[in-house]
Design a protein around this nucleic acid. Structure first.
Length: 498
RNA sequence: GCCGGGAUAGCUCAGUGGUAGAGCACCUGAUUGUGGAUCAGGAGGCGGGGGUUCGAUACCCCCUCCCGGUACCA
């Protein structure tokens, strides 16, 4: 071991091996296509930002989670020398987007502007990979800047819902999106005399847990507080009992449809201007959702939804995969004040972020598959005994020229057909091409359908019988028919898959 | 961050104050040009550091990582 560096990941960081990457690429490709169908254009920004850009944007909690990077390796700055620029790693894609808008609009970027962005973000919090909590994870965001209309909010919710639809998930049984508007809860709290911002935020945070903890625990946290399983004390909000009752009725009022829920909420709200304007805003938002054809099963109005990030100012959204055990897989909302951190010209904005890592692990937990292979090539060309190795190389080149994804076997088991077929089997190729001494002599090539061969020999238990059936699923054809034969096999196996 | 529990082979786990095993996986071979099963053989490990002890994988402390809760969020 002396001198060896232990191969190990940093806590909360992970490697993505090919099998997972192929699934992940497919998920990203599908969602990206959905984003593009709504007119979002791609954009990328650096992973590093200055600390002033990052700090204070997402609230105290977000500040604590920023990885700070030292720009030069000099540990001490000499007297009179300029201090190095303070740099950190982005914790989301929303803050960089706000910076982009402030920096490029309205010259290089015309408003309203809708963009999507795929990239890694970094949070120095306590990771729990099993639950989909990582220190580096990839977000797939879609945002609209320069629109304060609820039509934009509805577009975001619709594109979010369509993204999950594109993965073959069903609304309500596969996933659901909850939507809310902070102004509703604020109006309710103001009506019962809670004007203090800190208290209101604390109430929101607790209410947000309504679907995660028991009703008793929820009640305790709104009141005197409680102790969790490990004996840790959880501070309560300290509200009076009757007020807690009223709050729980308010956030638990969910009806069958979004508009019925809103009607019920309206009846509980005070007759203030604040409440009326909040209800009117949500009602218009809901009418746009209806116009977009967003189903009641996929998207529900849930007054308990709050979300933690400080920059949200109005509508908020959160997506959950049913039974996946990974928490929320997407979230978003309106953040009209964020661009103002970077510019005197305020720009309204709204957007959504989908967490790819959680989504992919959640899909895996649910057993959802897209038929992605373990290899990017469909065919492997084996290097047979008693033949010039370049012959296999020529065959591979010929297949590639014909547009077939092809791997040439370059391992150590050259000439050992059994070993090479075992490799082909393990990698999941659909077909193997064999050109050995016999084929060269006859001017032929042997093409093996690996799936068909496996199926036809599945039931054989006897060794000699198994060996006798060795050429199952394969055919030897004139060399000129190589690509046609391969295409036929690939077409067959594709049909079987569909 | 905080509270609690863990760490033995690639994986799932057993085990003891006298330096370790199983199943699966992996590698080699069984009429040299055929995937699987079977059979035979093989390789591979007590997370890191310190302490107690004649002796530590085991007991104690620290670190790292993992699991659960909390907080927060994707």
């Amino acid at each position: 071991m002396t001198g060896l560096v232990r191969p190990q990941n940093l806590r909360g960081f992970r490697d993505l091996l090919p099998e997972e990457m192929l699934l992940r690429n497919e998920v990203v490709a599908r969602i990206t296509r959905v984003y593009q169908s709504y007119g979002f254009v791609p954009l990328d920004t650096p992973v590093l930002e200055s600390l002033p850009t990052l700090l204070g944007s997402g609230g105290e909690e977000a500040d604590k989670q920023i990885f700070v990077v030292r720009e030069n390796t000099k540990p001490v700055v000499a007297e009179g020398e300029a201090a190095p620029v303070e740099v950190g790693m982005r914790f989301d894609l929303t803050v960089p987007f706000a910076r982009i808008i402030a920096q490029y609009a309205p010259q290089q970027i015309k408003l309203p502007f809708r963009r999507y962005h795929v990239g890694p973000v970094f949070r120095a919090d306590d990771p729990q990979p099993e639950q989909g909590r990582f220190r580096q994870f990839t977000q797939l965001d879609a945002d609209i800047a320069g629109s304060s209309t609820v039509a934009a909010d509805a577009e975001i919710v619709a594109v979010m819902s369509a993204a999950f639809d594109s993965l073959g998930l069903e609304g309500s049984t596969g996933y659901f999106v909850r939507v809310n508007n902070r102004k509703l809860v604020d109006a309710f709290l103001a009506g019962v005399g809670i004007e203090d911002f800190e208290t209101a935020r604390h109430v929101l945070r607790v209410l947000d847990k309504a679907d995660k903890i028991s009703p008793e625990a929820l009640r305790a946290e709104l009141g005197e507080g409680r102790f969790d399983v490990s004996g840790d004390r959880i501070r309560g909000v300290g509200l009076a009992g009757d007020l807690i009752d009223a709050l729980l009725v308010f956030v638990g009022i969910g009806k069958d449809t979004r508009s019925e829920t809103l009607d019920a909420l309206e009846a509980l709200l005070p007759a203030t201007d604040q409440a009326q304007s909040a209800v009117a805003e949500v009602r218009e938002f809901l009418s746009h959702l209806d116009a977009l054809g967003v189903s009641e099963a996929s998207v529900q109005l849930d007054p308990s939804l709050a979300r933690g990030l400080a920059y949200y100012t109005g509508t908020v959204y959160e997506a959950t995969l049913v039974g996946a055990g990974v928490g929320s897989v997407g979230g978003g909302g309106r953040y009209d004040g964020l661009v103002s951190r970077f510019s005197d010209d305020p720009v309204a904005a709204v957007g959504v972020s989908i967490g790819i890592d959680r989504l992919v692990t959640g899909l895996a937990n649910l057993g959802v598959e897209f038929g992605t292979a373990r290899t990017t090539a469909d065919v492997v060309v084996l290097v047979m005994p008693k033949v010039e190795p370049a012959e296999a190389t020529r065959v591979a080149a010929e297949l590639r020229a014909a547009g077939v994804n092809t791997e040439l076997y370059v391992g150590e088991s050259v000439g050992k057909v059994g070993k090479q077929l075992a490799y082909a089997n393990a990698q999941g190729f659909r077909a193997a091409v064999m050109i050995g001494g016999n084929e060269v002599q006859d001017g032929t090539v042997t093409v093996k359908n690996l799936q068909a061969g496996a199926e036809s020999r599945a039931a054989i238990a006897d060794n000699s019988e198994y060996r006798a059936a060795r050429s199952a699923g394969q055919m030897t054809v004139p060399r000129a028919d190589l690509t046609a034969t391969v295409r036929e096999i690939l077409g067959d196996t594709l049909e079987e898959k569909a």
